[in-house]
């Protein structure tokens, strides 16, 4: 169960893709939320996924993280692992971290305690009962809190943070989980322009040792990420490529950018 894999290693020649979706379909009451979706994320890549409301972005995240099972299609992690066979806790321990659209941190615990809970390690009941923090772990927690810019808030309750700070805390919690792949759902939603740019810089920093998939609406944010973009529409891929290329695509303009 505790297959916590550390982040390095994805540059090895043998791994073709970090995440591979092929012909994935999922319908709810006859409505095809995901329709024959295929996606290939390379190890070490930073990928932005955009699309209008109802394009299937959240359902795609749910399928990858084990919350929803697809009706058909392939979902593979690190070439060989069939994600449809696992549940949320397994997939988290395999090395996929997920940040929700709405910031979800544990409001009644401090920033430090939030990061401590997320810190990679065994997740068993007994270990948690007898857990004693080592100094390396404490250092790692401090380091991550510093990375996401919350050092001054270390001992504050997470519930007292601003919206943007909660988003960063959650990103910090994702990083200490030690995932290889990070799925980040609308990190810039509800942020000020300044916070949005800082978040983009933070994600680029994180991308140095993690594969990152970002779902976002905010075009300035996507521009700042400066990465390959996939446009989803009606549960499938409409276009893929650099932002300049994608935004020149007439179909994309019609369904999304032109509005």
């Amino acid at each position: 169960m505790s297959a916590v894999v550390k982040s390095p290693g994805f540059h090895s020649a043998e791994m073709q893709s970090m995440l591979y979706l092929n012909g994935v379909t999922k319908s709810f009451d006859g409505f095809k939320a995901i329709n024959n979706l295929s996606l290939d994320i390379y190890p070490g890549e930073l990928r932005a996924i955009i699309g209008p409301n109802g394009a299937g972005k959240s359902t795609m995240m749910d399928i990858i993280t084990g919350k929803t099972r697809p009706d058909s299609g392939e979902v593979r992690f690190r070439d060989s692992i069939d994600l449809t066979q696992y549940d949320e806790a397994d997939i988290a321990n395999l090395g996929i971290g997920r940040k929700f659209q709405k910031p979800t941190v544990i409001e009644t615990l401090t920033v430090w305690e939030n990061v401590e809970l997320a810190l990679a390690g065994t997740r068993s009941v007994l270990r948690a009962l007898l857990h004693k923090l080592s100094s390396e772990q404490a250092d790692k927690i401090d380091e991550v809190i510093k990375l996401v810019g919350l050092k001054a808030k270390t001992n504050d309750l997470a519930g007292s943070l601003s919206h943007g700070q909660k988003q960063w805390l959650e990103i910090g919690m994702l990083i200490v989980q030690g995932p290889e792949l990070l799925l980040v759902d609308e990190p810039a939603a509800g942020m000020t322009d300044h916070e949005t740019m800082e978040t983009a810089a933070l994600l680029k920093e994180i991308n140095k040792d993690h594969t990152v998939v970002v779902v976002e609406h905010d075009m300035d944010f996507i521009k700042a990420l400066d990465s390959k973009v996939t446009v989803l529409h009606e549960g499938g891929v409409l276009a893929e490529g650099r932002l300049e290329v994608v935004s020149a695509n007439p179909r994309v303009i019609e369904v999304y950018l032109g509005r």
């Binding site: 321990n93 929700f100 544990i106 409001e107 615990l109 009962l129």
Partner: peptide
């Protein structure tokens, strides 16, 4: 730490699941 996981479950159950 177990107690803090309990509080995490109380306040954000699915977040706790995604933490593994």
């Amino acid at each position: 730490k177990y107690g803090r996981v309990l509080v995490a479950i109380r306040d954000a159950e699915s977040r706790t699941r995604f933490m593994g």
